[in-house]
C-alpha cells in the first residue's frame, strides 16, 4: 500500500507578508543582506534554504536540540523505515510560517459524550468561570 504523502507547506505570497515574529522584527536578522537567496548565519556567511534549521537554531537552540533528538516535529511514513523514502521528516519552515511562526494547524475536537450521571459537576464549572475571569 503506498503511503499517503503528507504535505504541509506555506507558499510565500510576496507583498502580503505580515511580520509577526515577536522581537525579531528586522528583515536582515534572518535574510542575508548581500545575497537575498540565503539566510544569515552568526558569522555573516550564508545558509541555504535546505539547512534552514541552522538559521532558526540561532535563537531557538533548545527547540533545535529537541528537534535533533526527534521529539519536536512531525514524522510520517513507517516506524520501521529501511530507506529515506519510507519516512518523511519536516524542517522548521514546513510547519511554521517564518514570518508569523505561531503554529497554525490546530483544530479542536469535541469532548467525549457521557451518560447523564457523568456530566461535569457544578464545582468544576465555577472553577472554569473563575479561570476565565482571571486570564
Amino acid at each position: 500500500m503506498p503511503l499517503p504523502f503528507f504535505r504541509r507547506r506555506f507558499i510565500p505570497r510576496y507583498g502580503v507578508i505580515k511580520l509577526n515574529h515577536g522581537a525579531n522584527d528586522r528583515c536582515y536578522n534572518c535574510h542575508l543582506i548581500q545575497d537575498r537567496n540565503k539566510y544569515a548565519a552568526n558569522d555573516g556567511s550564508g545558509i541555504m534554504h535546505e539547512n534552514v534549521e541552522k538559521m532558526c537554531a540561532r535563537c531557538h537552540g533548545l527547540i533545535y536540540k529537541d528537534w535533533r533528538n526527534g521529539t519536536h516535529g512531525v514524522r510520517r511514513g513507517k516506524w520501521s523505515a529501511q530507506t529515506v523514502f519510507e519516512r518523511q521528516t519536516f524542517d522548521c519552515t514546513e510547519c511554521h510560517d517564518p514570518h508569523s511562526p505561531r503554529f497554525q494547524f490546530k483544530t479542536y475536537a469535541s469532548p467525549p459524550v457521557w451518560p447523564d450521571k457523568y456530566i461535569r459537576s457544578t464545582i468544576i464549572v465555577t472553577d472554569h468561570e473563575s479561570v476565565s475571569e482571571s486570564s
Binding site: 516535529g73 512531525v74 514524522r75 519536516f90 494547524f105 490546530k106
Partner: peptide, 11 residues
Amino acid sequence: YPACVEACPTG
C-alpha cells in the same frame, strides 16, 4: 505508525 501518531498535528 498507529493511527494516533499519524493524526497528531503537533508531532
